[in-house]
Simulated assay, not measured.
Amino acid sequence: MPKATPRSDLPFEIRKSTIQGRGAFATRRIRPGQRIIEYTGEHITPDEGDRRYEESGMGRHHTFLFTLDDDTVVDGKRGGNESRYINHSCDPNCEAIIEGPHIFIYAKKNIQPGSELTYDYQYERRPDHTKEDEEFYACRCGTAKCRGTILAPPKRKRAKKKSAAKRGRA
C-alpha cells in the first residue's frame, strides 16, 4: 500500500480560491505525469454517501465524495487529506486515476507555481437530469472551455452513416 505523502513534501498549498471556497495552489513546478497526491478518506457505500450529503437540504452542491467503483465511494471529509480541496475545472491541469482501491491525482500538463490545481469531476449525468439539476451542479471554473456544470458532458449520439445511394453514389 502506498504511503501518504508527508505534508512538507506536497507540491501545493491550500488557500482561498476564486473557483470554490479553498483550493490547492502549486508551490513549485509540477511536470506532466507527476503523481501529486492520493485522494483519501473513509471508504463507504454510495447509500451512506447519499445519507451523509443529502442534496435536498443543500442550496448548491457540495460534497467530498469520490466514486471509486459501483460499491464504494471515498468520503474525503472523514479521514481525508488536502486532496479534497482540489477544485473542478472543465479545462483541468490534473486528472484523477483509479488504481485498484486508490485514487491518485496526476498532472496532465506543466503546472507553474501559483496555478490552481484542478481536475474534471465529471459527476454522473442521468437521463432524468433537469435544467434545475444543471444549475445545482453549476461550474464556476471560468475557463473558455467551461460547460457550465460539473456533470459529465452529455454522451454524443453517433450519426448514422448514409448509404451510398443517399450520398449520390450508385
Rank of each mutant, 00 (worst) to 15 (best):
A4C: 01
T72K: 01
R7D: 14
G100K: 03
K166G: 00
E135C: 02
R78T: 06
P32F: 01
F12R: 09
R169N: 14
R15N: 10
R126Y: 15
R125H: 08
Q20D: 15
F104N: 00
G59A: 08
P153F: 08
K108S: 09
S83M: 07
T118S: 12
R51S: 15
I37D: 10
T40L: 15
P2E: 03
A170D: 15
P127S: 13
I103A: 11
L10A: 09
Y39D: 04
I97T: 09
A159G: 09
M1D: 11
K161I: 10
I98P: 00
K157C: 03
T130G: 06
I36N: 05
Q122A: 15
C139V: 00
L117E: 06
E135Y: 07
R140Q: 11
A24P: 02
R147N: 10
P6A: 07
Q112V: 04
L117H: 03
R22G: 06
D47P: 01
P46R: 11
R22K: 14
A26W: 10
S17L: 08
Q112Y: 12
S56C: 07
E13T: 11
I111R: 02
R147L: 11
F66P: 01
T118Q: 07
E38Y: 06
P153V: 06
I150E: 13
D50F: 04
I19G: 04
D91A: 08
G168Y: 12
M1P: 08
P92D: 08
D128L: 01
M58E: 08
R125K: 10
T40W: 09
Y106R: 00
E42K: 06
F66K: 01
L68W: 05
L10I: 01
E13I: 05
